[in-house]
Write a protein that binds this DNA or RNA. Sequence first.
DNA 1: TCGTTCACGC
DNA 2: GACGTACGTGAACGAA
Length: 442
Amino acid sequence: MNPINRKGYRLLHEGSFAFGRAERAGIRIDEQYCHKQLKSLENKERKLEKKIFNSKPGATWRSLYGSRAKLGSPDQLKAVLKKHYGLRIEGSVDKTVLASYNLPLLWAILRVRKLHKTRTTYLRGIASETLDGYLHPFFNLHTARTYRSSSSRPNFQNIPVRDPEVAKIVRRAFIARNGHCLVEIDYGAVEVRVAACYHEDPRMIRYLKTGFDMHGEMGAECYRTKKSQVSKDMRYAAKNRFVFPEFYGSYHKQVAPDLWNAIQELKLSLNDGTSLHTHLRKRGIKNFEDFGDHIERVEDRFWYEKFARYTEWKEEWLAAYRKTGYFDLKTGFRCRGWMRRNEVINYPIQGSAFHCLLWSFTRLDEEMRKRKMRSVIVGQIHDSILADVHLNELEDYIELATYISTKAIRKHWEWITLPLIVDVEIAPPDGTWYDKKERKVV
DNA sequence: TCGTTCACGC
DNA sequence: GACGTACGTGAACGAA
């Protein structure tokens, strides 16, 4: 830890007390539910495993390894694929690779992996750390190189949310205290906003101030459609396979295959139902070659026309680091040591964005105690805060949390030159974390 | 015991 | 013109 001024020091000092209070308060867990699900998942897993070993490729598996046969072994899997199908896989056998072969055996393996992960890492991890109905995950401020936080025993920051089946199984274990409900407040695009405070790119600032839909626009550009033709899935693909990777320092040769595979994987179609392959063919993109060339041009426009100032900033920032051997965060920290290009560019943004959360978390905790509120903050996930809120305090809590994290913070840190926004999600009083529903607040 | 692979989050 | 995805934790496997 290397704070360079009093503000930086105080942020971590007070933040660690606030995190400690959340850890002590804990999150209420439905232990009965956990144990029921653990058993049920174990059964499903065992049945599926049996089914796999009784199949034809499963027989090959048993003939090769006998009682030492393990579905979880990548080496064994590769040997079985080679013997049974004559299929040679070099290197990784992860989800994307296995899915691409579209074989019943491999889909079954992926399903076992998923059930197993859900049971062991999540439900078992939660159950074994729960004491008298409350879970107390650790929130650390001293482990991440980026000045972000981390969480462990269990890691509260990687609870499944994207896969609806798994999200449902795991998140239904998290419940509110009696007479309370769970409320999650998330910063919207905070890393993009904080980045803009560093590079001050005028076009990016205009986008952020007008609520412009960048993911939708890039969906249209990547797949050569009109903005009005962009479907929800296309936007999702553009966000996770173009915009974010590009911001993290990826480039077209990596990004283009992912965008291309998304067409199959997510069965992408236009708003009116036209298949994307058909559409692309009409626009002169007949194969992956063409598509790769197209994405290269999209990328060029993105960095050299749209966000030219951002691009300049990256080079200047890197050059300054290479000259001096360090760089400073706007939140009062100095980063030193040997770093690669992408690290130098990403750390200040990730770190400062997390510090916005940390400051808000700390102030909110302080104010809630001052007001003797019965609601408690129970956790944090990089850019969001989870609280267990007393029903009588619901409106007060939302108003206070929103005010602190969007308004008060800008009085404390004048370097935040852009508006910050939050989304509010609330679970019903008798609901679980899985049942949270969005409620837009600015 | 430790490095690698896999999978989950932001 | 070449280069090039950030950060975390945990479980299982398998070699040492």
